[in-house]
């Protein structure tokens, strides 16, 4: 069964900003899924619609068995949301923030407090239970939002850029915790991020969104194996007679400054490339490896869509 199915979802703000241009998305129950994309891609807009914070312009959303348009309340009760920005009442105590949301989900006073104690202890916030939210550190605020999202034991947990602006240590412990609840409590998790490492470290499946469209989807492992393609930037003494975009197995891209970008797919070597270039009459003066491979894959996908 799918925890989430989205069909032809569009969202236009103010009759002019096309934030989503008809996206389809399926997330299987139990999955740990990343919605990956650069800033402004439409991630938060998609999340907002799924969580009833925004009205869609058109399209359908189904959460487990429940259609959002016709069974909104049932769908909502299955979702826990950790939004991108802090959105709790800064003057309420930590305990009240989570028990309020428990109450909105129909949990009685006693159950709510029991569950709150469990979840706050697990997220290392129990000592702060009587502290107003505004006095928490940044990492604690994030954890409070996670605790609040989990208070009613949702089957689908959605996190919108949960680790943006969070330091490495907290990020690691958050990753660990999310992996645990995904595996042990059978909670489907969808997170949005613009960090590839995050998707790589956590998720099984991924969709890449850019300009309001899904440009790629699949298993993280598969995408990563494609990312083992390496890209070099070569400065040329002499260019080829004719500029082609393919040389044997190598993809070539001439850049405006006259340098050449080459992809070396898995199973081929730099030597093979240099040999092929020499045969084609291209002389290389210097070369360098382009940084972060994953970053590159991501940029390629996003670029390809733009062109």
């Amino acid at each position: 069964m799918n925890a989430l199915s989205i069909r032809q979802l569009t969202k236009t703000y103010d009759h002019s900003v096309h934030a989503l241009r008809g996206i389809d998305l399926d997330v299987a129950s139990g999955d740990f899924f990343a919605l990956l994309g650069p800033n402004g891609a439409g991630k938060s807009t998609a999340i907002g619609i799924i969580c009833s914070l925004l009205n869609p312009t058109s399209g359908e959303v189904q959460v487990f068995d429940h259609n959002l348009a016709t069974e909104r309340e049932a769908a909502k009760s299955l979702i826990g949301l950790v939004p991108q920005e802090f959105n709790f009442n800064a003057f309420e105590t930590v305990l009240n923030v989570v028990t309020n949301v428990a109450g909105y989900n129909g949990m009685g006073w006693k159950d709510a407090n029991k569950r709150a104690e469990y979840i706050l202890k697990r997220l290392d916030l129990w000592e702060k239970k009587d502290t107003p939210g505004r006095q928490l550190s940044g990492g604690m605020k994030r954890r409070l939002m996670i605790a609040r999202a989990l208070i009613h034991q949702p089957k689908l947990l959605i996190l919108d850029e949960p680790t943006a602006g969070v330091d490495i240590e907290i990020r690691r412990s958050m990753w660990e915790y999310l992996t645990q609840i995904n595996e042990q409590e059978d909670t489907t998790i969808i997170l949005t991020t613009h960090y590839l490492e995050e998707a790589e470290a956590l998720c099984r499946n991924v969709a890449i969104i850019d300009g309001g469209e899904i440009v790629e989807r699949g298993k993280v492992a598969e995408l990563l194996s494609r990312a083992t393609m390496e890209t070099y930037v070569l400065d040329l003494i002499e260019g080829p007679a004719s500029r082609s975009s393919q040389l044997g197995p190598f993809a070539l891209r001439y850049r405006d400054d006259g340098s050449l970008e080459v992809d070396i797919p898995q199973g081929h070597t730099l030597n093979e490339l240099l040999k092929a270039l020499t045969e084609a009459g291209v002389q290389v003066s210097s070369m360098r490896n382009k940084s972060n491979r994953l970053e590159q894959l991501f940029l390629q996908l996003v670029d390809r869509d733009a062109s």
Binding site: E73, A74, K76, L81, P83, V101, Y104, N105, R148
Partner: peptide
Amino acid sequence: EELLVSPV
């Protein structure tokens, strides 16, 4: 938003 996302 706490209210809007909840089944109230």
